[in-house]
């Protein structure tokens, strides 16, 4: 009952926070833009007979190649859900942060964090439900008959679900880290860099194979599917199920730590 009210309150907060729309825009429009670019290069490669220039000609692969943008969007959604609580208002308006209002309205820290987690996952679900089908439609429309589709439908569905789970867990990790940091800047920079420019886990895997158990790398199998090892030089990526569970364990542990810290720390 209480949790339902808090979910309603957090939904209202999300619906009236401009940064949430920025996160959704990155996830949806960003992914579709990259899918479009990739599809056009596949079509051009096919037209000029230079198919070896592109990694894969399949529309499905073209869509999944744009997933990092969805991850970036998920990071933004997870971070701003919490960082907006700690943003100080302008001094002219008396300073002050929303966390004071949030915790006087709902003193149970665990309930507040749970409500935020649920709303964040719901937002990620919305972006996934729009992005993946729209991306596939776009890629098929652009590539057309230029290339054959190799992927089986059941496999595609499983990987799409995996992508949603990966994004959700990424968003939850971002939420937990932001709660710990009480500011969005460091988690945002760190996680966006890691999921778009340089994967620290991938770099670390050159040093130790244990890097495969880091959350982002562990979950990679979720959207790469069963033959994930064809993407990497080594036997690095865990299978979808165990990998997903390892990533979920990371997210759960970080959220538990965040709940404990919120409970003990002065707001």
């Amino acid at each position: 009952m209480n949790l339902l009210r808090l979910v309603a309150a957090e939904t209202r907060k999300a619906a009236t926070l401009p940064a949430v729309f920025a996160g959704l825009a990155v996830a949806v429009l960003g992914s579709l833009a990259v899918t479009l670019l990739n599809s056009v290069s596949v079509r051009n490669a096919a037209a000029s007979g230079n198919l070896e220039r592109v990694v894969s000609t399949s529309p499905v692969e073209t869509v999944f190649a744009a997933l990092p943008l969805g991850t970036v969007g998920a990071v933004v959604l997870g971070v701003v859900a919490m960082s907006s609580e700690y943003t100080a208002n302008s001094d002219d308006a008396g300073g002050g942060r929303q966390i004071t209002a949030t915790l006087t309205a709902a003193p149970g820290r665990l309930s507040v964090l749970s409500a935020k987690a649920l709303v964040t996952v719901a937002l990620v679900a919305v972006s996934a439900a729009v992005t993946l089908p729209a991306g596939l439609f776009l890629a098929r429309a652009v590539i057309g008959d230029a290339a054959a589709e190799a992927a089986a439908p059941g496999d595609v569905a499983a990987r799409a679900l995996g992508a949603f789970v990966y994004w959700s867990l990424t968003a939850l990790i971002a939420l937990a880290l932001t709660a710990l940091a009480r500011s969005g800047i460091v988690p945002m920079v760190l996680l966006i860099t890691n999921s778009s420019l340089v994967s620290f886990s991938l770099l670390l895997s050159n040093v130790t194979p244990l890097a495969r158990y880091l959350p982002d790398l562990a979950g990679t199998g979720l959207f790469l599917g069963d033959d994930a090892d064809s993407y990497t030089a080594f036997d690095l990526v865990l299978d979808p199920l165990p990998g997903g569970l390892v990533m979920a364990a990371w997210a759960a542990a970080l959220l538990a730590v965040a709940a404990l810290v919120l409970h003990r720390r002065d707001a």
Partner: peptide, 15 residues
């Protein structure tokens, strides 16, 4: 307590 506790990018009604 210190200030309104409202996020700066929200309206009073939304808060």
């Amino acid at each position: 307590l210190d200030g309104s506790g409202a996020h700066r990018s929200r309206t009073a009604r939304a808060h």
